[in-house]
Structure formats: C-alpha cells, structure tokens
Design a protein around this nucleic acid. Structure first.
Lengths: 166, 166
DNA sequence: ACGTAGGTTCAATTTTTTTTGAACAGGCCC
DNA sequence: GGGCCTGTTCAAAAAAAATTGAACCTACGT
C-alpha cells in the first residue's frame, strides 16, 4: 500500500550499506544508533518521507521516530519540506556537511566547552588559597594549561567549520 | 598511612574541580567517565601515582583501574615513569594536547573512518547494477558526497594535529 | 620452592542509555 | 460533538556499556 516503490534488490542492498555507514558514523561521534538509522534512510531516499514511512522502514516505535526526528531537527540534519498537501509532515536529509558539522558543534560541543570554561574560571579564583609555594606553582601551571586547551578549542572550531564550508 | 600528603582543604577543592573538568570533557568525546577520573587525578597530581593510589583516591575497583590505565596508555594519555625502586609501576599524565588529540584520533577516529571508506568502496561497485537511470543518478550523487566527506575528514585530521601541535 | 604483592582478565553485576508503548493533545472532517 | 489521524511525552522495559570482584598470572624476596 501507499506510494512505495518496488524495492529492487540492488537498491535494497545499497540502502542497507548506506544505513550501516551512518549507524557507524553516528556511533563515532557518540549519538544513538537510531539517529544514524533515521538519517541514513532519509539520506538514501530520493523523496521526502513521513514519520510513518520511517517507522515501517526501520521497524522502530513511534516514540523513537518522533524523538529521533526531533533531535535531528535541532541538529539541523533533517528538515521538514512541503511535498504533498496532506496532514503529514515530510522530512528530508540535509546533506551539507557544513550544516551537519555546525549543528553538531553547536549542540554537542559548545555547551560542554562552555561549562568547562566556567569551571576553569572558578578554579583560577581558588588558586591563591594554596599556601605552599611550590604546590601553588604546580597547580598554576596545570590550570594555565587547561586554559590554553580551552582557547585552542575555541580557535579550532570556527576554522573547522570554515574549512568544511568550502 | 603511606606517603600521602595532608590534603589541605583548598587543594582538595581544586582537585575536585579538576576532576569534574575531566569527567565532563571525557564524556564529550564519548569515553567512559572513569577514564576521565583517572586521567584527572593524575593530571592534578604533582607526583607519579601507583594503581593502588588511584584505587584509594577514587574508590574504584582494581579491575577498573587496571583497564582504565591500559586504555589511557594506548591513547598515549598516561605514561609509566621510573620513580622509586620498588615493584610498583608509577604513572603520570601526559599533558601535551598534541599527544592526547593524536592518540584519540589514532585509536578512536581513524578505525571508524577506515571502515567507512571500505564500505564506500563496496558501494561504488554496486552502483552500476541499478537499472533506472534517474535513480542511479541520485545514488551516484549521494555516494560521491559521502566520498567527499570522507576525503575532507582525511584532510582535516592532520591539519588539526598540526594546529594543536604548535 | 613457597608465599605474597602487583597486575591482568573476564564473566557476572550494576549503572546508564536507549527504546518502547500507552496516554494524551490538537486539528480536521463528517 | 465525536471519531480519527499525526504527532508528542514520559514512565517503564529493554538493551548496551561500564564496573566489579574473584580467579589467575608472574616475578620477587626469603
């Protein structure tokens, strides 16, 4: 039923490989497998899909699909598109690396980085309380080092985005 | 007992903050929390520590400590040092960002990337089997795109390392 | 050779994360 | 209004990952 295409064996094989590509890829960056699966199916689909299509295709629950799509949208990896004039929302994969990486950095990296920087700031304030000269010097060095790391990260992320943006 | 220093309150507070810094940081890159804890303790310690020291300090099991140190060693984040002439092995944190990032890339990124590239290679071989012209064109575009992503990653990683290496 | 301290391994357990599914909300059409 | 279709939420269940602890090495000192 519905407007599904005959899934010719070859295409099915290819879809499966693309899927496995993303299942893996997403693991690498520490996101749930189902995110990779949903994105993979959309990436491999010539036309937009509904949530129900994804549920059928992947055999996942409605809840998973809904949450997965939500996350993918906030990452900017998937977008809603006008497609048919019905009640459903149709999705397609956003395939620009720049956007994918940007979303990942914004949602998954920046917040950690920020909280780390806040921790560092507090640390600096504690330093002077250490009595022992030598020990204080040691901690100063370490904390300065953490500060440099943090600074590097702040420098690298925009460069990375620019580089991937072409 | 043992050669432990008086953990003056201030130092304890600072150590705790450093620990929490790494607990978080390690989560960001998808490594187990205990790795961050172990590394954090070593990072915050002016002198080398034994496995037993870590067990006492963190209240973790011998197994955890052993496995954690193993992983940290293969990541190049921790190294064994000569310290006292006893049977124990003493560890200290390697604090060069370049080395940390390098180890992470080598152990956690490269293998995924490689397996992804192998999948891509197989994919290319399947493409010609698709009968439908239009559909084949679509898949060709997508797979070429994946290839470009992969290529970018291969380009970026060395640059990243160089940049952090200074 | 024996006992013991330091260290590793791995199956079992615990903890954490992910997924499910049932309840619910809103909107559309009759 | 009432039924129905899409989609969301969230507590409970399932799955996956990390941690433990006991068995087991190995090398050293006596």
């Amino acid at each position: 039923m519905s407007a599904q295409e005959k899934p010719s064996t070859e295409v099915a094989v290819i879809d499966a490989r693309i899927l496995s590509f993303f299942q893996d890829g997403v693991r690498m960056i520490g996101l749930p497998k189902s995110l990779g699966e949903i994105y993979g199916v959309l990436f491999a689909s010539p036309k937009p899909m509904t949530m129900q299509d994804l549920i059928d295709r992947l055999g996942i629950s409605k809840g998973s699909a809904s949450q997965g799509l939500k996350m993918l949208r906030t990452l900017g990896a998937v977008r809603e598109v006008e497609y048919r004039k019905d009640r459903k929302t149709y999705f397609e994969a956003d395939v620009e690396l720049k956007k994918l990486v940007g979303g990942f950095i914004r949602e998954e990296i920046r917040p950690h980085l920020k909280s780390g920087q806040e921790k560092l700031a507090k640390l600096e304030l504690e330093l002077h309380k250490i009595e022992d000269r030598e020990l204080r010097a040691f901690y100063e060095e370490r904390i300065k080092r953490l500060g440099r790391w943090s600074g590097k990260a702040n420098l690298v992320l925009p460069l990375l985005q620019k580089f991937l943006g072409e």
